[in-house]
C-alpha cells in the first residue's frame, strides 16, 4: 500500500484483482519471475477458482474504498475443477450487466481469462484496467458521506 501512496495528496486508483489459484495467480507469479513491470495499484487476491468468486466480494471491495475490481480465471475449458469457470462466466455476465445497469462505469468491474502462461497478458490487462480507472477518477459509492462533506477513505 505504501508503494502507491508515496506522493502525498496525489490520488492513485486502488484495484483488487481476484485471481484464480491455478491460472491467473500463477500467471502473475510468472510475470514476477520474468521481472515484468506492472502498476503497483493492483492488489492481487487469490481465490481457489473463478467459480469461487462471490459477487458480494466485488460489492464489498467497491464499498470499502476500491476504485475497481478485476476478476481473472482460467480460459473456459481449462478449469482445474473442469467446470468452475463456466459457472463463473454465466454469473459474471449477469452481474456485470446488473452493476452497469444500476450506474457503475463498465471499466470498474472487469473480467478476464488469463492462463498460467500468459504473464504478458496479465501485465497488459492490469496496466489497461489501472489506466482506465485512473481516467475515471475515484469511486464514491457512499454518497451520503460525500454529501455531508466527509471524504470516504
Amino acid at each position: 500500500m505504501s508503494m502507491v501512496e508515496t506522493t502525498p495528496g496525489a490520488w492513485e486508483p486502488k484495484i483488487v484483482a481476484f485471481c484464480c489459484h491455478w491460472c491467473t495467480y500463477t500467471g502473475a507469479d510468472l510475470a514476477g519471475l520474468n521481472r515484468m513491470n506492472y502498476p503497483a495499484n493492483v492488489r492481487v487476491l487469490r481465490i481457489p477458482c473463478s467459480g469461487r468468486m462471490n459477487p458480494q466480494y466485488a460489492l464489498d471491495a467497491l464499498n470499502k474504498g476500491c476504485d475497481g475490481v478485476l476478476v481473472c480465471g482460467c480460459h473456459p475449458g481449462d478449469c482445474h475443477y473442469s467446470t468452475g469457470n463456466y459457472f463463473a462466466r454465466r454469473r459474471m455476465l449477469v452481474f456485470k450487466r446488473l452493476l452497469e445497469y444500476q450506474g457503475l462505469e463498465p471499466e470498474r468491474f472487469q473480467v478476464r481469462w488469463i492462463s498460467g502462461a500468459e504473464a504478458g497478458k496479465f501485465r497488459d490487462t492490469v496496466t489497461e484496467v489501472v489506466e482506465q480507472v485512473r481516467a475515471l477518477g475515484p469511486l464514491h459509492l457512499n454518497h451520503e458521506l460525500v454529501l455531508s462533506g466527509m471524504e470516504v477513505e
Binding site: 460489492l59 464499498n63 454469473r91 452481474f95 446488473l98 452493476l99 444500476q102 459509492l141 457512499n142 451520503e144
Partner: peptide, 15 residues
C-alpha cells in the same frame, strides 16, 4: 444504515 450497505444488500439479494 447507509447507501453503500443498502446497495450491497439490494444487489446481493438480486443476485
Amino acid at each position: 444504515n447507509n447507501i453503500a450497505e443498502n446497495r450491497f444488500y439490494g444487489l446481493t439479494r438480486v443476485m
